Amino acid sequence: MTSFLDPLISFVSAHAGLAYLTLFLAALLEAVPVVGSVIPGSTIILALSALVPGGDLKLQWVLLAAATGAVLGDGSAYWLGHRQQRKILNTWPLANHPRVVQESESFFHRFGTWAVFFARFVPPIRAFVPITAGALDMPPAKFYAVNIPAILLWAPVHVLPGVLAVSAFHDYFGVPHQGHLGKHLWILTVVAVAIVLGVTIWIYRRRQNGVVAEAKPRA
């Protein structure tokens, strides 16, 4: 992986426009069924985000490129599933990955609409849940109501760790970098993680309460 990332980082650091395009494509391809399970999209995004503290890339454009790619990737997969319905799950190349397809279906049935949210943070089913949501006839309004907020959290959760790690490295060794970026990003990271954890706990408790209510004998 290092032999692949090192020349990529060196190249895109000298060509900012291509760096943003690479981020966009990495996020988009990561959302494509089957392809997303082999493309190291998250690793590429994390690696390129490390160029932000040195001023090679701008944080806002990195976040925008990653989020836009994810929205288009998830949306394309969803609409393909929505149009083809369940038969798409038994068609090549998905038919060659029955275990992951089954896991994505089970994940969807277990969490319902919120599966679209949680799948954004769980590889490799991240690349299969959007098309599964479409194949199982999830309404578009429900899909996007959960998918877009998930991506808006997913992007900073993937980008900020690389930015913070390099920013901390620069601070420790006295390497000049752009402003006091790290201090502000720590706050954003904590908020993003807190939101993800809060939603996860809320969904878990809600489901547990539902199970308990169903288990109670009726009078």
Rank of each mutant, 00 (worst) to 15 (best):
H177G: 05
L80V: 12
A27M: 08
A194R: 10
W114T: 05
L181N: 05
H170G: 06
D137C: 12
F108H: 11
P93W: 06
A145Q: 08
E105Q: 14
L23R: 00
V12T: 09
I148Y: 01
F4Q: 10
Q102E: 15
G73I: 03
K87P: 03
A141D: 13
K216E: 15
T43S: 11
W186S: 10
Y20M: 01
V12A: 03
V211A: 15
H82V: 07
I44Y: 01
S42I: 11
A155R: 02
I44V: 14
L5R: 06
S104G: 10
L197V: 15
L89Y: 06
A127K: 01
A150E: 02
L80A: 14
L197A: 15
P176S: 07
P33M: 04
F111K: 03
L28K: 05
G198C: 09
V193C: 10
F173K: 08
G162Y: 03
L28I: 03
G179E: 07
A27Y: 04
S76T: 12
G179H: 05
A47I: 02
L18M: 11
G54N: 11
P93G: 12
P7S: 03
W79F: 11
R126I: 09
V71A: 02
N147R: 00
W114E: 03
L153T: 02
I125D: 02
G81M: 08
P161S: 09
T2W: 12
A165H: 04
S106K: 14
I9A: 11
V52P: 01
F128N: 02
G36Y: 07
A95N: 15
T22K: 01
V12D: 03
Q60R: 14
V32Y: 02
W92N: 13
A16W: 02
G17D: 10
A141E: 14
A119E: 01
L57V: 06
F169Y: 14
V159P: 04
G41N: 04
P33W: 06
D74C: 08
H184G: 13
Q84P: 00
A31S: 13
L94F: 12
H97P: 04
P161W: 06
A141Y: 13
V212I: 12
R126D: 10
L29A: 03
P93E: 12
D74T: 04
G81F: 03
P93Y: 08
I151N: 00
H97W: 09
I151L: 04
Y172N: 14
V190M: 13
T68M: 13
G36N: 06
I45A: 07
V157I: 15
A119I: 00
